[in-house]
Design a protein around this nucleic acid. Structure first.
Lengths: 224, 224
DNA sequence: CTATTTGTTTAGACGCGTCTAAACTACGAC
DNA sequence: GTCGTAGTTTAGACGCGTCTAAACAAATAG
């Protein structure tokens, strides 16, 4: 039996591993979960005893296959819930993350099955993140590029946006930027600002934000 | 801030208070929550400090108005969830209780609102239990009688069935007995068995089960 | 009206998940 | 290469929710 908190740690390691590759550092997990580093160390110790992570002291941590399966299960719950909230309860994209976080540990396998069925077995959540399949095999990660890596003139379609910052997400949604949106880069201003064209409207984005928007090229040219 | 566990205790006191009236005994709560009596004593102590229950040592416990409001909030969550699971996720009546128990503490106020709206502000859950309204005023409890108090010949309509025992509930559902079902009492056998007619079929129920099925009379006669 | 049984509370312990303070490791600057 | 610093781990504490064992109160039988 695994506690909610342990599941949260495994999810965190999974996500951070995807972002920066293993090994995942103690402080990165602490930041992600809003907890102090000693707390992480002690929790990671327990996960190691259970064979869910491999750890090298002072170096960092990495999921074992068993740990990855747990993380994928949690992620599947999370993203199915997000999809459900957006599709059937009319939540805005920026509101679904927190609600799904609260619920993801408490739904039964039965609930998961029925939800998936109701939603027609979706493969992508409202932010464009892939939903792990029911067999919990590691999902394909379509090769996308960061919007920040593109140059003026590039035409791209948004693949996914980071779901963690609700305010940012709302800003983007209001500007019409969400998975599936087509846009073109007008300018990369030297002060660290991207200007993109969305449906004929100029939208301004600081570099930091452009870095977490994943896109696919529309013209097979100009890959970074 | 109230923990999930505290909410569970308040819900338990509420339900037990409705069933047997105050004061609610320590052991009754312990049974209900599947916990030992000392645990209840210590928890009740904390609830008392917070002004959510009034207690007389060795006698029992009773909800304060504040405690009752919390209990009603939890119950509203629970019963809205049950309704949702049955109506939109095709759960059977006997499956909804446990799932709702797991989720009731983790949905936001926003979720509650959207759920109620989606369901068209229901006033009764699938078991026939009243759903507290959004203002959390104590709901009306329609005056029903126990099926067990009726005699041969009485025609009644089922108002509610106890949602706690999933097996019993499934048996009743399979026999066609659920809120809204019309039935008539054929016989009260002296060995502690009720025989009722449901849609022309004989259904046999031990006294204990007949005691937890609440009904309303169809002929204005023969009130116990 | 006392004695026994039944039920409740106190006492003390434990695991979980968290913290702060202090010890330690690793790594980049010099 | 040594040293200082940034980051990690150990040590020790705390509140929560639970338990068992023992002390205590209330209800009941005689």
């Amino acid at each position: 039996m695994l506690s909610d908190v342990m599941e949260d740690y495994l999810k965190a390691v999974y996500v951070l591993q995807r972002e920066h590759g293993p090994p995942v550092k103690t402080s990165a997990i602490a930041d992600y979960l809003d907890v102090t580093p000693p707390t992480v160390t002690s929790m990671v110790g327990k996960l190691e005893e259970r064979g869910l992570v491999a750890r090298e002291k002072y170096k960092g941590v990495e999921l074992t296959p068993e740990g990855e399966t747990v993380a994928l299960e949690v992620l599947r719950h999370h993203r199915l819930l997000e999809s459900f909230l957006a599709d059937h309860l009319d939540y805005e994209y920026d509101e679904v993350h927190d609600e799904a976080d609260a619920l993801e540990h408490h739904i039964s396998e039965e609930f998961e099955r029925r939800l998936a069925r109701k939603l027609d077995d979706p493969t992508v959540d409202p932010h464009g993140d892939p939903i792990p399949s029911a067999d919990l095999e590691p999902p394909e990660h379509p090769d996308t590029t960061a919007l920040a890596d593109h140059v003026a003139g590039d035409r791209v379609v948004v693949a996914r946006v980071d779901d963690r910052n609700s305010e940012e997400l709302r800003y983007l949604t209001d500007a019409g930027i969400e998975p599936g949106t087509e846009l073109s880069v007008r300018e990369h201003a030297p002060i660290g600002l991207f200007v993109v064209d969305v449906d004929g409207e100029d939208v301004h984005l600081p570099d930091r934000v452009a870095a977490v928007i994943r896109v696919r090229s529309l013209d097979e040219v100009s890959e970074p």
